[in-house]
Design a protein around this nucleic acid. Sequence first.
RNA 1: GUCCCCGUAGCUCAGCUGGAUAGAGCAGCGGUUUUCUAAACCGCUGGUCGCGUGUUCGAGUCACGCCGGGGACGCCA
Length: 589
Amino acid sequence: MDLPFHVASHVDLALRAAANRLGLAERGFQPEVRVADPAHGDFQANGALAFAKREKQNPRAVAQQIVDALDADTQAAFDIALAGPGFINFRLKPAALLAWLGRYDSEEHLHTGASSAHAQQTWVVDYSSPNTAKQMHVGHLRSAVIGEAICRLLAFTGARVIRDNHLGDWGTQFGKLIYGYKRWADPAALATDAIEELERLYKLGNNATPEGSPALDEARAELVKLQNGDPENVALWQKFSEVSLAAFQQIYDRLGITFDHNLGESFYNDKVDRVYRELTETGLAENSNGALVVFHDEHPRFSRNAERPNPFMVRKADGASGYASTDLATALYRTEHFKADGIVVVTDFRQGDHFEQLFLTVKKWFAAKNYRLPELHHVTFGAVTGEDGKALKTRSGDVIKLKALLDEAEDRAFALVTEKSPEFPETERRDIARAVGIGAVQYADLSQNRSSNYVFSWDKMLALDGNTAPYLLYAVARVRSIFRKAGLDPAQPPTAGASAPETPQELALARKLVQFSDAVQLATNQLRPHFLGLYLYELAGAYSAFYAADKVIVDDPAVRARRLLLCHRTLIVLETGLHLLGLRTLERM
RNA sequence: GUCCCCGUAGCUCAGCUGGAUAGAGCAGCGGUUUUCUAAACCGCUGGUCGCGUGUUCGAGUCACGCCGGGGACGCCA
């Protein structure tokens, strides 16, 4: 039989069919299939327990009944056993493992297998989103890294993904920047490191315009001129944006990120009037102290009756738009223009309230106007701290620039590569250092549950053991090394005549490989890339154990072919998975 | 005051819609290489899952209440 990519869903369907034949389905039987502890099997179904309890029957008897009613193909593919109070354990037989591995033999076929989950869907992912005229710093790292991984996971599972960089390119800071620029801009500095110079000019402008000073009035006048379309200031603002994007792109190139759009806040300037109008005419928004706000009275936090009311500020009392209004306009634009089925916004957890209010408002607004409502997800993440638990800073207390952080990662990785593989030519060591260093920084973010804070530690992320990028990249290099030494092309492994996995390490590795589909599904459904990272770590561990126990290049052709097959499938799954997380893989290291 | 996130081994962290004996890495102790990358592998040691009550056949996971850390709370984003 042909097992599908996602074997757990086959088990689920087979159990449902069996329950249906027994008439249990209409009484509410749910299989409850999940990946099992390897001690028990590959998958387990727990549904008989709850069902039997509800029906006041013996759970083991119910489970046995269902097992007996399973179709012949499923019975043939799995060793099936009852255990404990009524668990049904499924263990893929070696032949079935081999059949699955035979079918999913390339990154492309893995993608085909996974792509039904979000087929025909469009997802807009809003991530990174730095402010223009400033350098990206360490605080921008997580959104970029996590957001990119989520994009790749969604695309791998079949979605059309639109990467949208929602730049902070509009706001009061531009008055002060223009004020500073017009007085102190240094053309030479602008030519060499424009963004550095813009930061300097903003600081000068900010320091020169204290509260209540005439200079502040001048800066505000510059902002008003910009907002009213003054050609000189608009040209300056455009220059700031271009310079900023060019600087950001240098970072994005190193992280493997390419945005489809850079629709910043300024893009929505002319789209907020419609938001005001529709929220007012639908009665969702109201005037409060001169501002246009939305309350959500059903929600204790956002009710007008809350002890400290926290309304959603759609328009400020002075008539200016805030980010609530641009975010509302953004949600509408993504729905209407991109036809988004899902919208994902990746920001840190401190903006949780804002997005909760935003989504509540969008739901009511779209319902009132009869607009189609996409899935809305706010993907949050915790803070990055130093090993002292405090915000990450340089020794002198400054914010760490992202460029400097990535440079240091590469430098440290280069020192490691040079220590471990001094015989490699320097250009190759530099290249390896880029993949290992940047990958270590990315993977440190991705290997951990994004909800918690994470402690930034060079030693941990560059460690050669544990759940780190170097360990995973090393596993890839070891697989490739076997093919290289044997003079074989890993793109065309000689796996014909492979026998089914046999040794404990072969079986454990084969089982792990089949579970790739579960890891992808879990990581994508929950928008939590660390589930995939954890899986890859376990896979690399299973491979290392196999590597130590079972020699691949042996004389027996059937054994050699099956071990090469396992090596090859490990290679494509590891590489596919690492690429999904945004890492670059290596030939050797 | 209201709400959100976090609290699991000495340290850093996994633990998915409640499931079987709570798992890794580091640190500590002990092994493995005439054999495909030892940047590896294997074993041992290490836990009142912050505390309490409840729901359940079953709770690290759910509910409620405390304790501790971080955060948000009207015109910044």
